[in-house]
Computed example of a mutant assay.
Amino acid sequence: MSSTELPPVPAVNALPKVSPVEAEGGERLRSVRLPGATLAVRSGSSGNKGLPPALYVHGLGGSSQNWSALMPLLDGLVDGEAVDLPGFGDSPPPDDGDYSVTGHARAVIRYLDAAERGPVHLFGNSLGGAVATRVAAVRPDLVRTLSLVSPALPEVFIQRGAIPTGLLALPGMASLFTRCTKEWTPEERVRGVMALCYGDPGRVSPEGFRNAVEEMERRLRLPYFWDAMARSARGIVNAYTLGGQHGLWRQAERVLAPTLLVYGGRDQLVSFRMARRAARSFRDSRLLTLPDAGHVAMMEYPEQVAAAFRELLAAAGPPAGPGAVVAGGSDRAGAGS
Rank of each mutant, 00 (worst) to 15 (best):
residue 107 A to N: 05
residue 162 A to E: 12
residue 114 A to C: 02
residue 121 H to Y: 05
residue 144 R to N: 05
residue 106 R to H: 12
residue 117 R to D: 13
residue 113 D to M: 08
residue 111 Y to T: 06
residue 139 R to V: 11
residue 133 T to F: 01
residue 107 A to P: 02
residue 116 E to M: 14
residue 163 I to R: 14
residue 148 L to Y: 07
residue 121 H to V: 11
residue 144 R to P: 01
residue 131 V to R: 03
residue 120 V to K: 03
residue 114 A to P: 01
residue 124 G to V: 07
residue 137 A to F: 00
residue 149 V to T: 12
residue 133 T to D: 12
residue 127 L to R: 11
residue 149 V to R: 02
residue 153 L to Y: 04
residue 143 V to E: 05
residue 127 L to W: 10
residue 137 A to G: 02
residue 130 A to K: 03
residue 158 I to K: 11
residue 131 V to S: 09
residue 122 L to Y: 07
residue 144 R to Q: 07
residue 140 P to G: 00
residue 120 V to F: 04
residue 120 V to M: 09
residue 122 L to I: 06
residue 155 E to G: 09
residue 128 G to D: 07
residue 109 I to F: 14
residue 154 P to S: 05
residue 149 V to D: 12
residue 137 A to N: 01
residue 162 A to I: 06
residue 124 G to M: 02
residue 143 V to N: 03
residue 124 G to K: 04
residue 114 A to F: 01
residue 142 L to S: 03
residue 126 S to M: 07
residue 144 R to W: 07
residue 128 G to V: 10
residue 112 L to T: 06
residue 140 P to T: 00
residue 103 G to V: 03
residue 139 R to W: 07
residue 112 L to N: 03
residue 122 L to W: 08
residue 130 A to T: 04
residue 147 S to W: 06
residue 119 P to R: 01
residue 116 E to A: 15
residue 109 I to R: 15
residue 139 R to E: 05
residue 119 P to Y: 02
residue 108 V to H: 00
residue 128 G to S: 05
residue 123 F to S: 10
residue 106 R to I: 05
residue 146 L to D: 07
residue 151 P to K: 04
residue 136 A to Y: 02
residue 103 G to M: 04
residue 140 P to D: 04
residue 113 D to I: 13
residue 121 H to K: 03
residue 147 S to G: 10
residue 161 G to C: 08
residue 125 N to G: 09
residue 150 S to N: 15
residue 146 L to C: 12
residue 125 N to Y: 13
residue 105 A to W: 12
residue 158 I to C: 04
residue 117 R to P: 06
residue 148 L to V: 10
residue 134 R to Y: 06
residue 158 I to L: 13
residue 145 T to K: 00
residue 108 V to Q: 00
residue 127 L to I: 08
residue 107 A to V: 00
residue 150 S to A: 15
residue 162 A to F: 13
residue 153 L to V: 11
residue 144 R to G: 00
residue 147 S to I: 09
residue 102 T to R: 14
residue 113 D to N: 10
residue 106 R to W: 06
residue 123 F to N: 13
residue 122 L to P: 12
residue 107 A to D: 04
residue 114 A to K: 00
residue 160 R to S: 15
residue 141 D to R: 08
residue 141 D to F: 05
